[in-house]
Amino acid sequence: MRQLTLGGVAVRVAITLLCVLWFIPTLGLLVSSFRDEADVKTSGWWTVITDPFSQWTFDSYRQVLESGMANAFVNSIVVSVPATLLPIMIAAFAAYAFTFMRFWGRNVLFMLIVGLLVVPLQVAFVPLLNLFTDYDLNGTFLAVWLAHTGFGMPLAVYILRNYMSSLPHEIIESAEIDGASHFQTFWRLIVPMSVPALAAFAIFQFLWVWNDLLVALIFLGAGDNEVVTITLRDLIGDKGQEWHLLTAGAFITMTVPLLVFFSLQRYFVRGLTAGSVKG
């Protein structure tokens, strides 16, 4: 199959075309973000091909960072990390019980979790807003942490439980015979053995929270605590003509997910393959 047959050439041409097609929109944004404001607004980014040694600048990045993006970047980190770690621990305990313990209502409860995987988040917003208002939580980080913990829980339990049920049961049984309690078995055996699944979910949830606009818009809103997706949305909405700021802003918001994604791609892919549903 490796010879350069007609079919082989066709395959190469087709895949190259697809890749170019997929990459061009992003490339346009990347190139534009380093161009001068006047150039971005008056000529296409592809003109740099004929004039490659002019007009490069970091001005747009500097401007957009100074106009609130730096603050939003910090906020996004403060939102994303706890919103990733909190659901993992709670879900890990539950997944352990669903996998290794027998109790009344186990199957019903787990089916409930499977069902909740597909429930659209929107159904929860109005009552949760009311609830958070009662406790004066709207616009605080705590509100988003809690909301993301709740919304991420079904997928977390589902992925971790599926992974744990693939672990050899004999290990747990022998631990039990040796007199280990469930609590000890959980911390000393199951958690270390589940690291791939825990990492996969962590990456998944982190990207989801970092990239989320809707939950942030509703429970955090604009202002001091706004996250990068909201800042970017405002750039698009209010300054629709400020293309130079928009391109730089978009790339700043993309740095963290792309970094996470390219450094941990292996785990990320495994996470997708393990639990390919998100509620």
């Binding site: 709670i90 979790i113 709740g150 919304f151």
Partner: peptide, 28 residues
């Protein structure tokens, strides 16, 4: 009782943040 200690917090979380609000939304 121990299984409910392990499973309880997760069930509590989905009840408060998904099931209860979903029911309230239907009522609203």
């Amino acid at each position: 009782i121990k299984p409910y200690v392990f499973v309880g917090p997760a069930v509590l979380v989905v009840t408060v943040f998904l099931i209860y609000p979903a029911l309230m939304t239907v009522i609203f």
